[in-house]
Design a protein around this nucleic acid. Structure first.
Lengths: 345, 345
DNA sequence: CTGAAAGCGCTAACAA
DNA sequence: TTGTTAGCGCTTTCAG
């Protein structure tokens, strides 16, 4: 077992014939220490490349200057954008981030969350997995004083800061947009799992239809596998859609993976987009404008979401007086019009 | 400052009228402890949701069961695939990963690497930033016994395990493939920064050309901004290419971001692909087959790379007898033929 | 201005 | 079989 043996304070103390506490104070520029000694210590430390043992500091101080991030998978453009945002503010504030992935599994989420807690993270940023219904594991930690913030997927079940996007409005506006374009049979492909995100988008879709005088046709609504990984499930759904007496003229897909996989399947099935069927969906891929066809899509401010959540978290962490009122930030979505649903001629 | 106050061993000891060390041993199922006491302790621990303080364990044992990962940015499909691979084996082996991003900056790399080291990571997986020429910061840590493994971007400057892909061969084969397809003016867009990866690919490109009896024309080789973030630099390069007396009939792009951004710019410039100019490039986007046109590209086994590197690292970490011979794993690339360079009619 | 001592939570010799 | 003690590296009273 190899292990990195670094220079410690005691080493410095011994070398300089001082006590460890003097060294400690000198290094933190305490007013109690003479300039001369500070010089001496700092010079020696610099020369010998001393860096404090952060684990020891953590143990002593009860906090670690690190925050835990729980996402389903980093291999997802939306989440990696968020992580980028998180990192950007965490870094500036002197925190580093520990990432763990749930892969949409409740068990993994519980395991990871507890692991992070016992690694003494100072706070957590979590997007709960699609599978989790029960969040006792998070509540318990919060009750013990661990600041936890939700982003993207939230739940009313716990009172804390939250950052989401305008899921309802985004879906509502896009659906209305499609109706205005002349589409009549608007299919909606959403997740098989129940998340706040999917629920709100579905609601936005349905509300827009009825507001526009169309009826909600359940046969046009498909609930597909969690992350869209399950390509075959999606293929089935599409086949069913096209087998309908009145097949859809446009597909509104509720999340990133499903949007791109649908496009891919449509190609495979020799359906021309948008001539045979149009497509509009939530998607955060930066490649939307070079897809075939360029994809009209609703994008979410992933980077911003990460930043906001982290700002709030660090604020909570540093707050001496635990506050009583939590807030929910709702970020706007943006509809980027490209070529995949130009409207009915 | 809120902080999570968890149940400690001392609490258990006190509650059960035992000593801390007995509790410790009971919890780790030591042979020295009676079944009765083990029962007692474990029941109490379970009931009160005891989990050991990992920070304290780390401090005591000198290792943390965590490994540091240094990449340029998680917001990059190739790296997020790698991280996925890393996580998959790390998790199985009981390690968790701490990710830090260099954003291709040498200074950030040094900072992050040192930070990780002093957080007592047990080992590091690093893809050095494009900017770093000098790797003393890594050498020093290695000399102190910290296992470090390179992936993707490697350097001969340090002796350790390395995992790369067949950059030379991948570029060589693709270039030869293009020549066989009848292309004569093959442009190559590579990075402005010097990395092993780019050097090898450029070499493969040049060698293939000369082997095939074509001459290497420097005006067809463009060195563009590091990560392709600099869209305008790339636009300039393309303009220069098309302003040539004999413009290229195909562009071979050396890395992911440049490949997709080039495609995007080509659209903007109203160049038809592949009619006006064909395109082939390294790319790990999973969206290649729904791009416009579907992109012929060389993909690298990111997930596998992450797995291999992590396996090697954990092996090194656990190795009692520091080995003397390091190996380099070279993973194969794969050419996926799609529609962006069908050949000259 | 400097040092001795205690303690963060845990483990491991060594005693009992 | 259980307990005592020391110590990982650092910070922080409290004395000197």
């Amino acid at each position: 077992m190899s292990s990195y043996k670094a220079l410690t304070m005691n080493d410095i103390a011994k070398a300089l014939n001082l006590s460890a506490s003097t060294v400690s104070k000198a290094l933190s520029d305490s007013y109690e220490i003479s300039e001369k000694t500070k010089q001496l210590v700092n010079d020696y430390a610099k020369k010998n490349n001393y860096r404090p043992n952060l684990i020891a500091q953590s143990l002593k101080q009860g906090h670690s200057n690190s925050i835990g991030v729980v996402v389903s998978s980093v291999d997802n453009p939306f989440f990696s954008q968020i992580i980028n945002g998180i990192e950007s503010v965490a870094y500036d504030e002197g925190y580093n981030i520990i990432i763990s992935q749930t892969h949409e599994s409740y068990d993994l989420e519980v395991k990871n969350v507890n692991h992070l807690a016992h690694r003494s993270v100072d706070g957590m940023l979590v997007a709960i997995s699609t599978e989790t219904q029960n969040i006792d594991h998070l509540k318990k930690l919060q009750q013990h004083g661990l600041p936890i913030i939700f982003f993207d997927r939230v739940t009313d079940d716990m009172d804390t800061h939250k950052v989401t996007v305008e899921n309802f409005k985004g879906a509502y506006d896009s659906t209305a947009y499609l109706v205005n374009l002349g589409y009549k049979r608007i299919a909606h492909i959403t997740s098989a799992d129940e998340t706040s995100v999917m629920r709100e988008r579905l609601a936005g879709y349905e509300k827009a239809l009825t507001d526009k005088g169309l009826t909600v046709d359940q046969s046009l609504i498909k609930h597909c596998a969690g992350t869209g990984r399950d390509r075959e499930k999606l293929r089935e759904a599409l086949n069913e859609l096209f087998a309908l007496p009145e097949p859809p003229d446009v597909i509104f897909s509720a999340f990133d993976k499903v949007t791109t996989v649908t496009l891919s399947l449509l190609h495979e099935m020799k359906k021309r987009v948008p001539q045979d069927v149009a497509l509009l969906g939530f998607s955060n891929t930066i490649l939307a404008d070079i897809l075939n066809p360029p994809l009209t899509s609703i994008t979410q401010p992933g980077f911003e979401m990460g930043k906001e959540a982290t700002r709030m978290l660090i604020h909570l962490i540093k707050d001496e007086h635990p506050l009583t009122k939590f807030e929910t930030i709702v970020l706007p979505t943006e509809l980027c019009v490209r070529d995949s649903c130009p409207g009915k001629k």
